[in-house]
């Protein structure tokens, strides 16, 4: 237990970083995921194909590769730099990488939601003269979103846990190193594991309850 107290603050520092990453990932993935699903259901074949290609490539690529690509490919090779501070720079690269990766899952959850909206809703919307885009944003997506709040919650939970592979993008290497040192020097891994698990539980459990409650509250009655 002593080890947890000794090294706790340092690990907590890293954990805070995980939370910040998750917030960036959340915003990026929901915005990009919504754009992707709009592409996937659009009447324009090129957009549909592009959306499908993105989802298929990104969803089937291991996250570690996506994050390594953001750091090594996007930043080092292609020169995408957010800040002079290496720490800040890799934070945004990893955050965006995580968001871009999770967006594929958000897109697919929303697409499942769209399938729950009866065809007649879109027909009625088009029949009063709303355009495709208006129909999507005012009629279809609001109902689709409400239908998949719980699955979206699962996507968010997976994403929060995925922040732990941020080292692949060169972030949180200090925390990871700290953890390794603790294990190597003290041999006391179990308290540390339990402590980290507890921290994630505190963060994630409420999300499950919240999304469950929200999905009941916002359910569209037909």
């Amino acid at each position: 237990m002593d080890e947890l107290i000794t090294y706790g603050p340092e690990l907590a520092q890293g954990f805070l970083e995980n939370i910040k990453l998750a917030l960036v990932g959340l915003v990026v993935s929901f915005i990009l995921g919504t754009i992707l699903v709009a592409m996937r259901v659009s009447p324009t074949p090129v957009l549909r194909a592009a959306g499908t290609a993105y989802v298929n490539v990104v969803r089937n690529t291991p996250l570690t590769l996506v994050l390594a690509f953001s750091a090594l490919g996007l930043s080092d090779q292609l020169g995408l730099v957010f800040s002079d501070q290496p720490e800040t720079n890799s934070f945004w690269l990893v955050g965006l990488g995580l968001g871009a990766y999770t967006a594929a899952f958000v897109c697919e959850a929303l697409r499942a939601g769209i399938n729950t909206v009866p065809m007649g809703q879109a027909e009625a919307s088009r029949a009063i003269g709303l355009t495709f885009f208006q129909t999507l944003t005012m009629i279809i997506l609001p109902q689709a979103f409400r239908a998949v709040i719980a699955p979206l919650g699962s996507v968010v939970i997976a994403m929060i846990k995925n922040t732990t592979v941020a080292t692949a993008g060169g972030l949180l290497t200090d925390s990871a190193a700290t953890m390794k040192i603790v294990f190597d020097t003290t041999g006391a891994s179990i308290p540390i594991f339990l402590g980290v698990i507890a921290a994630f539980m505190v963060l994630i459990l409420p999300i499950g309850y919240f999304t469950g409650w929200l999905s009941r509250k916002l359910a569209v009655v037909r």
Binding site: P118, G120, Q121, S125, A127, R146, R222
Partner: peptide, 22 residues
């Protein structure tokens, strides 16, 4: 847009009502 404009001038009432559920 032209089709949307036309549809705005032609009302439609469906068998299954299709009121916007939300």
């Amino acid at each position: 847009k032209a089709l949307a404009r036309l549809r705005s001038e032609v009302g439609m009432v469906f068998q299954s009502f299709n009121l916007f559920a939300h």
